[in-house]
Design a protein around this nucleic acid. Structure first.
Lengths: 140, 140
DNA sequence: GCTAATATCTATAGTCACTAGAGGAGCAAG
DNA sequence: CTTGCTCCTCTAGTGACTATAGATATTAGC
């Protein structure tokens, strides 16, 4: 088994050094052993865990969710319904964002399809931002 | 013309009171006049400006972008190409986000389409997070 | 007019997920 | 042994807010 320093782990995982230390500080990544000179020493297992965190982050899971998923990993005999419900919850969030963004995109497209004109007064972009026909202030 | 306090402005705009003060502090919303008792007093114009900010925020414009758009509004004789380029830039960002989210969604769907099983060991969600076939750590 | 409830004020600190910087010390090669 | 790199800790900054504390103002009821 090989041991490597934080810079190496950073390269292998594509996670920046300060971010690795940050993950450790918030308890996502366990504290590694240290050399006599106080340097962190990591193993393949650290890399596996860090990659797990990176992938979960890429999927948009936040700190608490990742912690839950990790707990599940630690105890693989658990029913996986928990993992499912976490993932499904994320999926729902993503669907919502997708819908919002799509609407947003079409609004922006509308705006940009602003014909020939020379100044702000006749610009549909500004017009829409300034007195949109109230997209229902039902908040975000 | 009516004058109203911050709570009223908050209700009318659907923007929380501390957020309104925050916008003022970062220079997005101009400082309103005050009563003899030091309370902020707003007008219809404040509401219009705040709604402008809210809508721009909903469209995902960040502080600097909103300031740019506001500057354009203040000087309506300017060519509107500027507004266009800001909006187009935003559109590009939105397209990117959309693509990312869609990929993300299909990855999550893949995960969730985990058949009948009883524990984590046989759960595709955990499997994928734990040792995905490296979605190329090219990172974001 | 007085009192109690509500609204508002300022200032500071906390959130999330990092990123950046200062200042110091370990370590490997020439 | 000195240069240069990596690493250490600690503090502070980011953006866009949210939350809290303690003080003051305004309003409604009596």
């Amino acid at each position: 088994m090989n041991y490597f320093p934080i810079g190496e782990l950073s390269k292998l995982s594509q996670v920046k050094v300060p971010t690795i230390r940050y993950y450790e500080s918030i308890g996502l990544l366990p504290e590694p052993i240290r050399t006599s000179g106080n340097r962190r020493v990591y193993t393949e297992d650290s890399l596996r865990r860090l990659n797990f965190i990176r992938r979960a982050r890429e999927l948009g899971f936040d700190g608490p969710a990742i912690r839950q998923l990790q707990d599940l990993l630690e105890d693989p005999s658990q029913p996986c319904e928990n993992a499912h419900s976490i993932a499904e919850h994320r999926l729902q969030e993503i669907e919502e964002k997708l819908t919002q963004l799509q609407e947003l995109k079409s609004r922006l497209l509308d705006m940009i399809s602003c014909g020939n004109h020379t100044n702000i007064e006749s610009c549909t972009i500004m017009e829409r931002l300034d007195h949109d026909n109230e997209p229902t202030p039902s908040a975000k």
